[in-house]
Design a protein around this nucleic acid. Structure first.
Lengths: 415, 415
DNA sequence: TTAGTTTGTTTGGCAGCCATACTAAGTCTG
DNA sequence: CAGACTTAGTATGGCTGCCAAACAAACTAA
């Protein structure tokens, strides 16, 4: 019953206003500085309407007058720009061996970035989140921003996050069914606002959001962001929207089967993709192929394989070729399944293919059935290691822009 | 530039009205007969607004007064119901060996169903579409409906259809880059309205739409409809929306690699999923396994395998076990990638698993990495062979409901 | 200095939703 | 059976918010 109701939801005047505020604010943030007349042309809204919306955005503190812009002819325009005094967004990340906090403003300017190494797998969720909260204080101090000026908080975790912001599982942290939202709010209690907007999302998904908001993904309506560190994960954007699925686990591609005869994965299945292409798997293969002559030395790093391959080292060359092949098989599957415009290589892969994208493009071509002349780009991430925190920030920014009236930190404005 | 603008589009009063007309019409179609008061409660719109919207829907011919409904207490309500005289939707299908036309009204009542066998692979696109147009005339005659009363036309094809309704490729028909929209409009020129709304979509995608609109899919927000005849295709619904991808090829899962050591597919790759689980592959395997003792007999049908397995025939049992295994591997991949609530077995699979779903459920469980207690149903299609035409109809219906003012066939109303 | 061009504001009108009051049509109770 | 109660639907008036058009402002060009 009621399946058609899902088509759309009813709309009233206040929703209309809110939507149009969003549209104009988004355009202003996007341009950085833009006149009312241009906004009217670009959005299709009436000039008078744009003026009214811009005035409200000014009162809300989102927007301020910038400089003037003199065209070839006519009255010069007054530029509207995002108000840097509006507040900041905190983007954070909990990963296997570090915590990270980024403080930035809605225009995308970085105010502070702090990182703390931590073996999260041996830390309880509660403790890790406490330390993350402490790191946020440090970040705000460095940025010289008062806690009351925080507009929203984003957090990326290497696990599956459901629609209620519960972390269902994070295999590499050893966490299961953790109410991260609740813990986070407790940890920042008395420090940040009680009902601060909070976004919690999977790390690969946020990588995709980072590329979509601040990076190369802005060029594509449908793309797959591929990230691999200990496991392999993908963030999928289709029709401009992040694909989440029922549990938020869409794009958890590490355990797709690419070869049932492959080695056993720790998940119990055989031939999972990440058995072939995760960072750990690749480094292991390289170590084995190069023999145990340097058994005492610390494990190789990704760069070591690239450097060795440069010199013609057989083990390195073979390792890279195998990676190319299995990465291409999996990417081929992603392409057939999601039909994206582009695949963006992030994390480990952005390191491994910085100079070798063409090799991968060639290999992928032979593993994608293309009967109709696909448009498919394979690109390198523009964010590298920082993708997750920028995605946490960008996701929060989108959420704030979608609700310009509900933003926190209005106290200063009211006073 | 302008990536944030994609968040939402600006809204004005007429858009608001249109949206609310849609909401109310959708609810009326969905219920079949419902009072204004109930509509107000369910949609959250004001009673007065619902009355006004309902009046306009009446003027547009979409809705008429049905009977009365006396509750336990109070004034009886007047039921609003879809107007069966509003017109009909034609849902059609071009498949490898037949054409099909379904005539039905917006309430979902079937008025006529005609099917014509045709070896489409040896027929040119133009000829096939001409014959489809002829079949539509037959269907309308059988339904005793005038061509002017056709509200919209949907067509399903076993191929990739892009956003401009071009058929990019249909391997099993041997068609490539066919402007089906244009051909169809020419074929019905002078018979159906010049600017009749037309929907052209991939067959598996329409299977998903059929289940979503009229079948078991209505229970799920995210599900994958799996259809297999000559190839294997999936229609994916996420967040209540059909996933199409850049070229409309999302869910074309027949050529994902499930075993690089597998047999060569006609596409040139090795170990494509459809090499293991398509109807043709399964029948072939059964034939080989049962030996060539009956080489002269016509090939087995799907039912023959099931019947043989019932009697304990070793070849049949082995064939089914292999199908279970490889179907489960692929379904596992789909589940990891799309994270659906449900997988709906359509086409060939709805035949093969009608009595054996539990076997597949068990097998799938061992090929899905489930670290967090997934909710996943595996269900049989409710539509079987007719999924595609009902999907073409349902898709067109959704499109009409989304634009209640733009519907065709208003001439009769105006006169 | 005047005409032309572009920007942004002001004014008035209109569409559309909502709250409220009211009418309509039934059931329930004493 | 009359009056209280309940629910459905309509009518009225108000408010919000968009738009069109006129206007004021600020500049260039001749």
């Amino acid at each position: 019953m009621s399946h058609f109701l899902r088509l759309v939801r009813p709309v009233d005047g206040s929703w209309m206003r809110m939507t149009n505020l969003s549209v104009v604010l988004a355009a202003i943030v996007d341009h950085g500085g833009v006149s009312r007349a241009t906004l009217a042309r670009e959005t299709g809204l009436n000039k008078a309407t744009v003026s009214s919306l811009a005035e409200e955005l000014g009162e809300l503190g989102w927007v301020r007058a910038g400089g003037q812009d003199q065209g070839a002819l006519g009255r010069p325009s007054e530029l509207l720009e995002p108000n840097p005094g509006r507040g900041v967004i905190i983007g954070t990340e909990i990963n296997v061996d570090y915590l990270a906090v980024l403080v930035s403003d809605p225009a995308g300017a970085q105010r502070a970035l702090v990182i703390e190494e931590l073996d999260v797998a041996t830390t309880s969720p509660g403790d890790a989140i406490e330390r993350l909260a402490a790191l946020m204080r440090t970040g705000l101090e460095q940025a010289a921003v008062a806690p009351a000026d925080v507009l929203g908080l984003g957090l990326g975790v290497p696990g599956v996050v459901d629609v209620d912001r519960r972390l269902l599982v994070a295999a590499n942290l050893g966490w299961r069914s953790v109410d991260v939202d609740d813990m986070l709010r407790r940890a920042v209690h008395g420090f940040l606002d009680e009902d601060l907007p909070v976004l919690i999302e999977n790390e690969a998904n946020l990588g995709a959001v980072a590329e979509q908001t601040y990076g190369i993904g802005a060029r594509f309506e449908d793309f797959v962001y591929l990230s691999g560190e200990l496991g392999v994960g993908a963030g999928v954007v289709t029709a401009g929207e992040l694909l989440r699925g029922t549990h938020g686990a869409a794009g958890e591609v590490g355990h797709i089967t690419v070869d049932p005869a492959g080695a056993r994965c720790h998940c119990g299945k055989y031939g999972c993709w990440q058995v072939f292409v995760s960072q750990g798997a690749v480094l292991d293969r390289f170590r084995e192929a190069s023999g145990s002559r340097d058994g005492a030395r610390p494990g190789p790093r990704p760069e070591d394989i690239l450097a060795a391959a440069e010199t013609g080292d057989a083990a390195a060359v073979e390792t890279l070729a195998t990676l190319d092949r299995y990465l291409a098989i999996g990417v081929g599957n992603l392409v057939e399944m999601y039909d994206p415009n582009a695949v963006v290589l992030g994390g480990f892969y952005s390191t491994m293919y910085r100079e070798r994208v063409d090799e991968l493009r060639t290999e992928v071509a032979s593993w994608v059935m293309d009967a109709f002349g696909r448009e498919l780009s394979i690109e390198l991430s523009t964010h590298g290691q920082d993708a997750c925190i920028w995605g946490a920030t960008g996701g929060m920014l989108r959420s704030l822009i979608a609700n310009p009236r509900h933003a926190a930190a209005l106290d200063g404005l009211r006073a």
